[in-house]
Nucleic acid binder design. Structure first.
Length: 854
RNA sequence: GCGGGUAUGGCGGAACUGGCAAACGCGCUAGAUUCAGGUUCUAGUGGGAGAAAUCCCAUGGAGGUUCAAAUCCUCCUACCCGCACCA
């Protein structure tokens, strides 16, 4: 009777599905537990071993929780809409619809093969109209609340993918998907006002979870329910991304004009050290100043300063625009800029007139796009001043009066000098007093800035949900009436992106008309105005794939409702998600977006909570033999291959044995051999069920193992849990001839139960073999006898000056200090070490050790 | 530059709150069984000294705290990940 994984696995997979074992009654479930894993985007290559790595860990936890008595809902779906899938189709020259049909089938096949307790009756794909109908519905709600808006904006343009990218999809100036350099383009885009939620997104991180959590911390269900439970690392990443910065915003007049520039600073205390100011090249005032000059109005009015080096300035702006984002944001690049000659700004504190520059290292999108430059106390300004020979005026000294700005800027806080009436104040005092001054003059106030920017939603691509907007010449921009949803994505032959121009072909201030592939489909574009009935046109952009995935977990429990995005009662019962396992790479964006959408749902009154995930756990990266897996290296592990050869159970077990889940793992083929040995060994134990021995009586090791495995699973320490099961098997083998029939059954039953989260098929088969008729997953997780897990007999360690010199075996765990000391000093070895020395101190750790300090 | 992480045998990795470093597994060595080979079983396996008992040295490096440090603190080095001129 050999272990035949292929046969066993398909047998149980079929039986599970037939019995609907993993489809809980969502309304009647008494102890709901929503066990979610990040749904994969289906590439045609199929399920990646990295997906499987994450999924089986998540499933093992879900199965453990189920056996702990919860009604576990573990759904799966496909994040099939989006650039990644579309680009793949383009690459292989097939239509995305065909590719999707194929990958969908293949993916679900694979997902069934890995043996997770997925509810295959409740799957979703983001490209199905019944799903994206609701994605569009969300857009409309956003629009109605004024949270979806259109604006002309410089956006990231990937010339290879021919589309606009979200900031998040630009990695160091390059396209996340194809690796091409990203350029800047001025175009009209749809945005979600996530910045309105910045403070809330930030604050919830603080208030809802005060515990520092990580893989080290043991978390019970009760604890997890009390708040959001994320690792500190993830929260820091979110906090950084939101990037809150508290400072001051104030106005400075431009000499001889009616214009003012607004600047933002966190170091108002250094204002007396301002020797110039800088604008970003895109700053509207620059355009305005150039324009004023064009119309020659300036000449007639004494109140109109003019840019004297106009051509130079225009040239610089043109150059800056041409430069790709990656070049422009390259921090190592020497700072460049050009003075707006003839233009001066007035420092409101000392009325000093300073030159004004434009420079490309000033970002148009952060703060006000304008800064006061204090070279003595800001390194960037310092470098710039050195290069252009601008004065460096020191205004802050540290407390001992020391400072030096000879070689670099002094950026610390300190005490003010050269600052008129503020001299002698500390930085903090000065800032307060200066704010009062600004307020009195009504030219400035405190201001909070965030790095977080509004979420650019539109994509000039085919494979996404069409943005449900209609443009009517008379009535303006209107949402598609909800009853007309979904706006179906038309089936078209040629779905290639059609954007043509590169940004350098579009001159300053001009708007590039981005064209989506949908723009060429007349039947799609031409429609009638929902308000006046006149001919109108549809929006031709589709929405970002991040929107599809920002709310999918709301849909799973309510898939049977066609008339609403989700059922409130159902949702309140199952959400927030109890456990969410996914990649660290999504710790910023996906998490942030889905938190935002959840808050929005709450504000719409659809739900009562505003954080989607009670517990989020980020798994590490799976590598192979010390190297990242990649196609170019040819070291990809194909899960199908291993499942076929070794079975899913073995592959699962091996993936979970590799190491700590939070740290990822190093796949080595040789390790599979060891796992095979172990599984076979375990399997073979069940061939002598009927054997009867004299009985071993002491089953405390069994109880201890149950306790340890339980403890490990609770804290997601899968690898050590497996190690402990291995020890258990070894223990069984040592005693195998001695168990009584009754003991044998008990010990083996518990082995099956402990194994079941890891090797579900094998466990079912063995459970049946023992003689059970019901699924092992209807069983309760084994319990241990808390009396028997107590360590009664220990090895007492004897140290002298902290070094181990002897051990005494078989000591009662509750031995007293005096008794232990007596025993210890009487040992020959210890006598040797203590000879001629006085014991100054004796440290006794009950149940562990005794240490003599001499 | 900023933020986060990591460093333990030949390898993957254990060591939850400081208390027997190296659990568990791979690999390797020797032996047994089978023998075409794999499988299986037994013993051994951090380094050094020693015939042995035993002793010394070992958790990236240097200091420190402590009776006691892989674990805590300071500094340094290397690698990985994320963000990157955020005013």
């Amino acid at each position: 009777m050999h272990y035949n994984p292929q046969k066993i696995e398909s047998k149980w997979q079929q039986r599970w599905e037939k019995q609907g074992l993993y489809s809980p009654d969502l309304d009647k479930a008494e102890k709901p537990f929503y066990n979610l894993m990040m749904f994969p985007y289906p590439s045609a290559e199929g399920l990646h071993i990295g997906n499987m790595y994450a999924f089986v860990h998540s499933d093992a936890y879900g199965r453990y929780i189920r056996m702990k008595g919860f009604d576990v809902f573990e759904p799966i779906g496909l994040d099939g809409f989006g650039i990644h899938s579309e680009n793949y189709a383009l690459k292989i020259g097939e239509h995305i619809s065909d590719v999707s049909k194929r990958t969908e089938k293949h993916f679900y096949q694979q997902l069934k093969m890995i043996g997770n307790q997925y509810d295959f009756k409740r799957t979703l794909e983001t490209y199905q109209p019944q799903y994206y109908k609701w994605t569009q519905w969300i857009f409309i709600q956003m629009f109605k609340k004024g949270l979806a808006y259109q604006r002309e904006s410089y956006v990231n343009w990937c010339s290879q993918c021919k589309t606009v990218l979200a900031d998040e999809q630009v990695i160091g100036g390059y396209c996340e998907r194809c690796g091409a350099q990203v350029e800047k383009k001025l175009t009209k885009q749809w945005f979600f006002k996530i910045t309105d939620y910045a403070e809330r997104l930030l604050k919830n991180l603080e208030s809802l979870s005060t515990r520092a959590l990580g893989s080290k911390v043991k978390i019970s269900k009760e604890m997890a329910q009390s708040g959001i439970d994320w690792s500190e690392k993830t929260k820091i990443a979110q906090r950084e991304w939101i990037g809150k910065s508290e400072g001051v915003e104030f106005e400075m007049e431009i000499l001889d004009t009616d214009q003012k520039i607004k600047v933002f600073t966190t170091r108002l205390d250094t204002i007396f050290g301002m020797t110039y100011a800088i604008l970003s090249p895109e700053h509207p005032i620059v355009t305005l100043l150039l324009k004023t000059q064009n119309s020659r109005q300036g000449r007639s009015s004494p109140k109109a300063a003019r840019i004297q080096n106009r051509e130079e300035v225009e040239e610089y702006i043109k150059e800056a625009k041409k430069e790709t984002e990656s070049v422009r944001t390259d921090i190592t690049k020497e700072k460049t800029g050009v003075e707006l000659k003839g233009i001066r700004v007035i420092n409101p504190f000392n009325k000093q007139k300073t030159p004004l520059f434009i420079a490309d290292f000033i970002l148009g999108y952060y703060g006000t796009g304008a800064v006061m430059a204090v070279p003595a106390h800001d390194q960037r300004d310092y470098e710039f001043a050195k290069k252009y020979g601008l004065p460096i005026k020191e205004v802050i000294k540290n407390k001992n009066g020391k400072s030096s700005v000879e070689k670099k800027a002094f950026e610390n806080y300190g005490v003010l000098i050269n600052s008129g009436e503020y001299n002698g104040l500390t930085s903090y005092q000065a800032i307060e007093k200066m704010i009062t001054f600004l307020k009195e003059k009504k030219i400035g106030d405190k201001k909070i800035n965030y790095k977080l920017r509004d979420w650019c939603i539109s994509r000039q691509r085919y494979w996404g949900p069409p943005i449900p907007i209609i443009y009517c010449e008379k009535c303006g921009t209107l949402p598609v009436p909800e009853k007309n949803l979904p706006v179906l994505l038309p089936e078209i032959e040629d779905f290639r992106p059609t954007g043509t121009d590169s940004p350098s072909q579009v001159s300053q201030g001009e708007i590039w008309e981005g064209k989506s592939p949908l723009a060429s489909v007349k039947e799609f574009v031409n429609t009638i105005c929902p308000k006046c009935g006149a001919p109108a046109k549809r929006e031709t952009d589709v929405s970002d794939t991040f929107l599809d995935s920002a709310w999918y977990f709301f849909r799973y429990p309510s898939l049977d409702y066609q008339d609403r995005i989700f059922d409130k009662q159902r949702t309140q019962k199952w959400l927030p998600v109890d456990m969410y396992i996914g990649g660290q790479e999504h710790a910023c964006l996906h998490l942030l977006y889905s938190r935002f959408i959840t808050m929005f749902f709450k504000d719409l009154g659809l739900i009562d909570f505003e954080e989607p995930y009670k517990r989020f756990f980020a798994h590490g990266l799976l590598i192979k033999e010390g190297a990242k897996m990649s196609k170019s290296k040819g070291n990809i592990v194909n899960p199908d291959e291993y499942i076929k050869k070794y079975g899913a159970d073995l592959t699962r077990m091996y993936l979970m044995f590799l190491g700590k889940i939070s740290r990822g793992g190093d796949w080595q083929d040789s390790g599979m051999a060891g796992m095979t040995k172990f599984v076979r060994k375990a399997w073979n134990l069940f061939s002598d069920l009927k054997k009867d021995g004299k009985g071993i009586l002491d089953l405390s090791f069994m109880h201890k193992t149950i306790k340890r495995v339980d403890n490990d699973l609770e804290r997601l320490s899968f690898n050590t849990a497996i190690a402990k099961i291995m020890e258990y098997v070894n223990w069984y083998k040592e005693n195998q001839d001695n168990f009584s029939k009754k003991e044998r059954k008990l010990v083996l039953e518990n082995l099956v139960l402990l194994l079941s989260p890891f090797t579900p098929h094998l466990s079912e088969e063995l459970w049946e073999k023992i003689g059970h008729r019901e699924s092992v997953f209807k069983e309760k997780w084994p319990e241990y006898d808390s009396e028997l897990v107590k360590e009664e007999i220990i090895t007492l360690i004897i140290q002298v000056n902290g070094k181990i010199r002897d051990k005494i075996d078989n000591i009662e765990a509750d031995i007293f200090k005096e008794k232990a000391k007596e025993l210890a000093i009487s040992r020959q070895k210890i006598k040797k070490w203590l000879k001629g020395k006085e014991i100054k101190k004796t440290i006794f750790v009950p149940g562990k050790l005794i240490n003599f300090v001499v």
